[in-house]
Design a protein around this nucleic acid. Structure first.
Lengths: 219, 219
DNA sequence: TCCAAAAGCTAGTGGGTGTAGCCATTGCTG
DNA sequence: CAGCAATGGCTACACCCACTAGCTTTTGGA
């Protein structure tokens, strides 16, 4: 658990609410600091300074600097998953859902570079996310695997697309595009620059790698 | 310049040789430290400890911690370029050279993860490589661009492959594969694991994206 | 042999994480 | 409503880090 063990979250407890608000505030400040100074520029002292408090007070809310990273990671992971899930749900199952989900993911990651780096670049080697903080990523993998299976079932891709290998290929394409965009064109939103527009084209190569049976296909 | 300004490198100067040896030793230790503690775990104090010296003495050889990073970056960049260049030169110009160069690059990067991360992940946000330290990377881009042009000229790929876009696609594929391998399967050498064996297959999709004219082609 | 440059050192500044322990405030509870 | 325990601030401190100032010793070249 990232947060210091709280007392019983009794209903109607005003103390607990205030505490929770402070925790939110700390995390929001931490996100600001990471955005401005880089993921590694986060420090308890700086957060305390911006909160108008002395550094030791922060430790009433978080056990350590790493605990703050962990909370940021866990939240980032959760909201990123949610973004992707809803984008996929809005589209036709199969390739459409995959493309929509990945585009939404990319858009969100480029808009929240600090969190994105924390989630996928591990820029703080001493920080190892908790297994529970990693849990949403398992679900994300499941969603993408399902989309590939749907695409295969719908005849958009060959049967070989319903495989772990196809999943790995997809993750390579996506992480490549997003990584290059974040590293070389920071600040540019999704859809601009040299790299993010390549994703649809690259997803198209899935059809080259796993060609569907050339029977009649839905337009 | 990373190193503190040295006296005239007069020939036969024994002092200069000793100094140079110490610089080498410091950089070797720094590489060890990064490998063990993560790129960010590098510290002047730790290097001094391992060299059997007090921290301030290090500053006789390097202006700052960042100067050490810069020297490591510059060397890494140079040897990485050399690895790639010789691998490409040994192969047939065109797709073969591209594949051979990228495979050699991947092999070297996975074998030297600390340097690899320093070169391509920027895990030390406060560290911005000197423009001269970046110079080899310009040359690397040129090599890859040339290989694509050769492939197009040889009819292995369509004319569209002789383009910046194809170069970007290539960089996405490569950085995706290497990034996933380094992040998810650290310690595994090139050719093992889930990701690095995908590179040839992915390079094959270049032919799908930039199809050659279907005239007679060299076997 | 001499001496200046090289290369070590100690001491100290300022900033970071994190701990110990103190004290005022506050809001729940008898 | 009175009291009290938990909360959330604080100061002081220990220990680490990067880096500077300035001193001393070593050393290699003239």
């Amino acid at each position: 658990m990232a947060e210091v063990t709280a007392p019983a979250p009794a209903p109607g407890d005003r103390r607990a609410r205030r505490r929770q608000e402070t925790i939110e505030e700390i995390l929001a400040i931490a996100d600001d600091v990471m955005t401005e100074e880089g993921v590694n520029g986060l420090s308890v002292s700086e957060v305390a300074r911006r909160l108008g408090v002395k550094p030791p007070s922060i430790y009433k809310y978080f056990d350590s600097l790493l605990a703050i990273y962990d909370a940021l990671f866990e939240r980032g992971q959760r909201t990123h998953l949610e973004i992707m899930r809803t984008a996929m749900a809005r589209a036709e199952p199969g390739l459409d859902a995959l493309a929509a989900g990945l585009a939404a993911s990319g858009r969100w990651l480029l808009a929240h570079p600090a969190t994105g780096q924390l989630l996928f670049w591990r820029p703080v080697p001493s920080f190892q996310p908790t297994s529970e903080a990693m849990a949403p990523s398992v679900e994300m993998v499941r969603l993408q695997r399902q989309a590939l299976a749907d695409a295969a079932a719908a005849g958009q891709l060959g049967a070989g697309a319903d495989s772990d290998e196809a999943l790995w290929v997809t993750s390579v394409l996506v992480s490549g595009v997003i990584g290059q965009a974040m590293a070389n064109e920071p600040g540019l939103p999704w859809g601009e620059g040299r790299f993010s527009p390549l994703l649809p084209k690259l997803l198209g190569t899935l059809a080259a790698l796993y060609p569907p049976k050339p029977s009649r296909r839905r337009s």
